[in-house]
Amino acid sequence: MRLQIHAVRFTADQSLLDFIQAKLDKLDTFYDRIVSGEVFLRLEGADSNKVKEKIVEVRLLIPGKELFVKEHDKSFESATDRVMDVLKDKLVRCKQKRNDISSPAITQAKFMQEEEVVETDEL
């Protein structure tokens, strides 16, 4: 997955960037069609020189949909873990919906419905 990480108004160290990259790379195991992602790291209260909380925002692009999750916590690592939990759930639901739509039972039901329409038109 292509991932861009942006640290807004501060410089993030490489170990934090590597941690986030490693965590988000694991999302491919839940949904293999992720196109790309963007991560925004923000400091709440950075203007007053007293950082209160750290905010992690993740935007994932999948075919036909865009997922966005925003979490905050005392550290970027814990906020990233919370983002991961929410994204896992969202990706599993998207995958399940995709599989439900393309399941053989639904395809057969649509086919049967089309046949009924053709038969009633003939009368």
Results as ranks from 00 to 15, higher is better:
R2S: 10
Q4M: 08
Q4V: 04
I5C: 10
A7W: 04
R9Q: 13
F10W: 09
T11S: 14
T11I: 07
A12V: 01
Q14V: 07
L16W: 06
D18P: 00
F19I: 02
Q21W: 10
A22R: 12
K26S: 08
K26Y: 02
T29M: 09
F30P: 01
D32S: 13
I34D: 05
S36F: 11
S36G: 06
F40K: 05
L43S: 04
L43F: 04
E44R: 11
G45Y: 07
G45L: 08
S48D: 05
V51F: 04
V51E: 10
K52W: 03
K52G: 10
K54W: 04
V56A: 05
E57C: 04
I62L: 12
G64T: 07
K65C: 10
L67A: 07
F68G: 00
H72R: 13
D73Y: 01
S75W: 04
S75M: 11
S75E: 15
F76G: 02
A79M: 09
R82P: 00
V83L: 13
D85C: 01
L87D: 02
K88N: 08
D89W: 06
D89I: 03
K90D: 09
Q96V: 01
Q96F: 03
K97T: 01
N99T: 00
I101N: 09
P104G: 08
P104M: 07
T107V: 13
K110P: 02
M112W: 02
Q113W: 05
E115Y: 00
E116N: 05
V117L: 15
V117P: 00
V118C: 05
E119D: 11
E119A: 14
T120E: 15
D121G: 13
E122L: 14
